[in-house]
Design a protein around this nucleic acid. Structure first.
Lengths: 352, 352
DNA sequence: GTCCCCTTCTTAATCAATTCAGAACTAAGG
DNA sequence: CCTTAGTTCTGAATTGATTAAGAAGGGGAC
């Protein structure tokens, strides 16, 4: 059984391949009556429609943009921040009939292959933790926009001032009078690295984006507030419920216990709140907690956090990708805002 | 400036196009030294690698599967059930280097076009509410698996026994002694239909899948339990925070107030719990609530609900799609389980 | 010396469409 | 009657690769 192509139909109807193509793609180019006959024959033969790959090849447009994650795809869906971003991106993409091709990172090799093989019109690098595959992506010479990290000269960018934003969060807590402060850092998913990225003075590395920047912001505020950075309780975790829970336990078991915890993401902050509830530690009476992102669940939970325009980041990235390229490459830095809710208060024993 | 293709490189190096192709795709087919030279020239010329569309065309394999949603993509990311499913699907897809092409449904026309134009090796129809685009999808004559709804003869299927599962949920509540029961139904996103789908005796329609089945299950239990179906408070909502909230308000404002609410999804159940909390209605003292799905947030919230294997549905669907086709088309019906937690109890005034 | 195989490379066909330039014909305007 | 325009269709070129078949050359076995 031979495959059914435009030619098959053309032969059957007795017209040229061009005419059949027009019947599908440019109805105004042929007689309505003939077109009906062609479509009818196509139906009889079970023609699946013009072959998308052939069409893409000839037209030079795929109608799809690739979204690349630093982590496994499953992780992307598990994280509210990522989900919110995708929501924004999807909403502008679907307006122009553009699909999303999601690309995860099961292993560097596979990712590299998938990126090289993706039938797309452009890429969105969504990488809160920086992205080691930037070069692979740039090699494709397609429009690209990076989100959060890394910032690459000449490549459109969307992000926030992580360091500054983190600093305001820390200042809020210090301003309330806290002196025993703990800071949690996110690192890329477990096993991704064994280097001591908590060392903020080590030169930059694409792999550690927002996480390190936020950490640096916390330090800025602590140092400015008269705390020794080495006295601040420091621990690391990943943006993963299980690991965050463990980190929260470690920090809350410290003696003396910190009176405030700065979490690098809301997900981590929730883990801290859960552990505190389990331990019977009162929030904010005995413990203040600050998150980062202001994911949808933060408001109902009463979490004090730094709001960033999650969905808007997505829509902006989408527009940058779909709009005709501009010079110079746009670099959009969005605003953030500290949202004080019910998980922060003066430390116990403070004068009210 | 001419585009750089295999031919450009071939001419420059002085070899045939085939050899250059082999340098990229079949390294064992040529001399290592020559290969190095070819790649070097490719680098100098800024060759972006073999064109994916051309490659796909020739090879007949895209390395991508399309996932089609009944609703807008943004909605897909907002719903924990969908997210969980995608997580499962993504995990098996990425193992075989297969990408996911997500296709939403901004409007029927656009969706139709996107489906026709998607460069994919198969489709997964993810449609808790049934899917009017099945025909469009089948026309592509690619492997397909439908999830939840609809079941199409000859097409692999993954789902659960929604009606039976819903029935056990209702039986649980009735068994506790509740007689004033309210049932909420999900319908597709607002504006998708104006037909009275709450009429369970109306003949089936692809558009109304799990929602109606669950509703029917609730009715089964009520009728069997000696309640008149017309005495059961019935309201409709969509699987959307805002609309669910409004529906919950309507139902809780009824006089006499229902003592138990059966929600068609956990998302809707959460809305009911929120409204109850706002109204100062005690759960489960004054009101019992049952959800459906057992999304991750259900456990911490203590929600009594029907568990279905969300992520496993995704992995199963993925395997069905990627594995060589089998005859007859597999039809996987997965198990469900009532999980009783802290949102259900006997009605107020019942004998303890 | 001949035969056979292996490695390395080339030629030509193929994948399934789109698009540009132009042909054939009809209809209208002057 | 000639010109111009408009509609409808065709032929050939083009998109950028992969692949099967085959040629050229070298080396080893007999």
């Amino acid at each position: 059984m031979q495959r059914v192509t435009l030619q098959t139909i053309a032969d059957r109807v007795g017209v040229s391949r061009t005419t059949v193509s027009n019947a599908f793609s440019r109805p105004d180019q042929l007689n309505e009556e003939l077109r009906r006959r062609i479509l009818e024959v196509a139906g009889e033969l079970g023609y699946p429609g013009p072959h998308p790959a052939a069409r893409t090849l000839r037209r030079g447009r795929a109608g799809v943009i690739g979204v690349i994650f630093t982590e496994e795809l499953s992780y992307a869906f598990a994280d509210s921040y990522a989900v919110g971003f995708l929501r924004g991106l999807a909403s502008v993409a679907e307006q122009s009939g553009t699909g999303l091709h999601l690309i995860g990172w099961p292993s560097p090799d596979v990712a590299e292959e998938v990126i090289a093989d993706a039938v797309v019109d452009g890429f969105c690098l969504f990488s809160p933790e920086g992205h080691p595959l930037v070069q692979t992506v740039l090699r494709r010479r397609l429009p690209v926009v990076t989100v959060d990290y890394p910032y690459v000269e000449g490549v459109p960018f969307v992000g926030i001032e992580d360091r500054v934003a983190a600093r305001t969060a820390a200042e809020h807590v210090l301003g309330l009078g806290h002196r025993r402060v703990a800071v949690l850092g996110v690192q890329p998913a477990p096993g991704r690295t064994d280097r001591d990225w908590l060392d903020l003075d080590r030169p930059g590395d694409l792999r550690f984006g927002a996480g390190r920047a936020r950490l640096a912001g916390y330090r800025d505020a602590c140092v400015a507030g008269g705390l020794e950075w080495k006295d601040v309780v420091l621990d690391r975790t990943a943006n993963d419920r299980e690991l965050a829970w463990q980190a929260a336990e470690r920090v809350l078991d410290r003696i003396p216990r910190p009176t405030a915890i700065l979490a690098p993401t809301d997900e981590v902050a929730f883990a801290v709140l859960d552990v505190a509830a389990h331990r019977g530690i009162e929030v904010p009476g005995e413990l203040s907690v600050v998150g980062f992102d202001d994911v949808p669940a933060a408001a109902p939970a009463g979490l004090t956090t730094v709001r960033q325009p999650i969905t808007e980041k997505g829509t902006t990235a989408g527009r940058l990708l779909l709009d005709p390229a501009r010079e110079p490459a746009p670099c959009v830095v969005m605003g953030t805002e500290l949202v004080v809710r019910r998980t922060t208060a003066p430390p116990p024993g403070a004068i009210a």
